[in-house]
Design a protein around this nucleic acid. Sequence first.
DNA 1: TATGCGTGGAC
DNA 2: TGTCCAAGCAT
Length: 358
Amino acid sequence: MREAADTARLSGALLEWYDRHARVMPWRVAPRDGRSGLRADPYAVWLSEVMLQQTTVAAVRPYFETFTRRWPTVRALAAAEDAEVMGAWAGLGYYARARNLLKCARVVTDDHDGRFPDSYAALLKLPGVGPYTAAAIAAIAFDRPEVVVDGNVERVMARLHDIRAPLPTAKPELTALAARLTPRKRPGDYAQAVMDLGATVCTPRSPACGICPWMQDCAARAAGAAAELPRKLPKKAKPVRLGIAYVAQRTDGALLLERRAARGLLGGMLGWPGSDWAETAPDPAPPLDAQWEELDAEARHTFTHFHLRLRIHIATAPPGATPSRGQFVERTRFRPAELPTVMRKVFDLAHGRLDEIR
DNA sequence: TATGCGTGGAC
DNA sequence: TGTCCAAGCAT
């Protein structure tokens, strides 16, 4: 157990480092000196934190810009159509976040008069807001001294204290260690400072210990073990699943698309009608009667827990054809960017040949 | 507590 | 090429 004076020195040293090295991000205000009174917009903090769940800053940046331009306030977002928001989220992944984002915007608008609650407990009740996000919003937007623990903080704590127990077993211990270090002053800056440290210095591979403000205090560095921590339980192998995607184009260029079920994989997103995805070869079941042609190429895509190989069948839909699934979307209204990545891969492989046979 | 849930970049 | 990884949450 560290002395209180020691923890104050550590958090102080990190805040000094952050004052000099904080990265510029569109959802941030400049580091505070405790007097400026500047606070980040809770809507921007919430939106960015949800986008940043398991997602890199580089990937989030353009999406954040798009969302705040189209929907500058939580009320504006709450009033958006579901399909608009899902389309705007396409490509960012973990689509349950987008579904919960809309739910949350509507709860804040309808039940909280358009203002985000300012306490950890109230934030935690919101859809899509878990322990990390609730603490982050409370600290960053409302200056509350909450303990913010994400993957960066876990890694930094595991190294600082040389914790050899693997994740996720070690998470409670790492959270307790993070709690001891969290200062009462500038909690939002402190939270962002630890995460920035983890993202730029105390990185998963090849940590830059030589420039770390906590170099002298790091137990793992002293033991020569920094790069090996945190340990993690081994992961399961990903099985390969097989499927068929059907891309039908009408002679006027309209494409047959289908809104996926609201829950589960790619829930609520637009896609091509197709078979289930399973480890055994699927039986063909095209969504309309036509002269189907199977492409030589297949779309390969890796999800969180399986690899997918998607065979692609294409056809020109006969005039007046009525599909058993999905609906035709005018070509001028079709935006490949509104498809999840695996479906966009299918389109990229299909569209040249599609126009040849039309 | 364990599992399902995306994507793109780094190595 | 394959593997690992990132500012987690819901069930």
